[in-house]
Design a protein around this nucleic acid. Sequence first.
DNA 1: AAAGAGATTTAGACTTGTCTAAAAATATAT
DNA 2: ATATATTTTTAGACAAGTCTAAATCTCTTT
Lengths: 217, 217
Amino acid sequence: MFSQAEENYLKAIYTLQNNHGMAINTNLIAKKMNTKASSVTDMIKKLSVKKLLTYKKYQGVKLTVKGKKIALKVIRKHRLWEYFLVKKLNYRWDEVHEIAEQLEHIKSETLIDNLEAFLNHPKFDPHGDPIPDKDGNIMLTKTVNLLKLKVGQKGILDSLKDSSDVFLKYLNKKNLALRDRIKVIDIEPFDNSIHIETKTHQLVISKKVAENINIKI
Amino acid sequence: MFSQAEENYLKAIYTLQNNHGMAINTNLIAKKMNTKASSVTDMIKKLSVKKLLTYKKYQGVKLTVKGKKIALKVIRKHRLWEYFLVKKLNYRWDEVHEIAEQLEHIKSETLIDNLEAFLNHPKFDPHGDPIPDKDGNIMLTKTVNLLKLKVGQKGILDSLKDSSDVFLKYLNKKNLALRDRIKVIDIEPFDNSIHIETKTHQLVISKKVAENINIKI
DNA sequence: AAAGAGATTTAGACTTGTCTAAAAATATAT
DNA sequence: ATATATTTTTAGACAAGTCTAAATCTCTTT
């Protein structure tokens, strides 16, 4: 089996790889993991020995099929536990991340599948991200960044790039939630701020906010 | 906060203290924790510095009030998670221990209380052991060891001293479960084996089995 | 009260995961 | 193409938790 640290690195590298495509460099991982580049190098070597990623000095890393599989298992656990916390224990979506970070490392051959059945096989976690199935298949929803939309275009708020507490709290305050249908009313060329409309209200969001929101058209 | 290792030691010492009363010696802890006496000494020193137990060289240890409180918190978590696993995820009582050993260390100020509410404030775990409340109060049910019963006496199977997998499987096989009402039919003086009767059947259990069963009269 | 047995502690070592500081490699700019 | 900046790696250290082997203490027996 793999240690919590190893699992966390794999998960981090997986998400970086998904956003960036190419080989992931040390500094990027260090930033994501909130640690030092030297620590990343150390861990990378271990994971490379275990054939979970390929690594050439100074060239960054890429997950192997095996490494990806493990990352997806951890992500599956994380998202199912988040769903449990929100749906059964009445947490808000902006409260569950830290606890799920711990629960995702519980070791058991059967636990997560039993939990999934208990939750009635949900397909998305509370942040709108797809939950990988037992075999590591993940439903990749095609979405575009909100910044890409033109004036007049409509879409559904699908998922977030940034799941930080501050950002989630911001969305709550502005009455924006996943699955909300939105329409772009106007785009201000000066600062790229976007005037949008939901079923219930209108508001202006900054470029920074928009680039962290993905829209399903 | 405390590490998993520290929590495990506190829990082990608490249960030993409850069964034995007086100061707990190093070897006993080592056996319970499945580790070496020297490791126990090392950890004991750390816990002593943190005022979780009192320790005089060669004299064994005793939990402080603070140490007991933490042990009870861990036990509370363990038992509530066990209840969840059995009642919600349909595990058998002999399958949940290992998973609960991990879940009991999840850190959160609110999680366990929310879980308790979700489970409707159960008072006993699937092994019949009382679940400590939020403040660490534990309902101590007065029970006697099955060995203490005389011929003809009746009682209810309340809890187990040994919760090992083998023992639980044995009880399942013999169709004995918590809350079963039993009656002592005969005691064999030669080997202290006990002939008992339940609502559904009769059977003979060895001294070793009997001494691991507590009865509420 | 001395000896031997058993329990406990110490000393030193190892593993995992981390860090700092310095060295080496790569990328960028003129 | 050379100097400079940035990134990455190495070397050596540390903390937590564990271990083995040796030393020390306590208890029991005679």
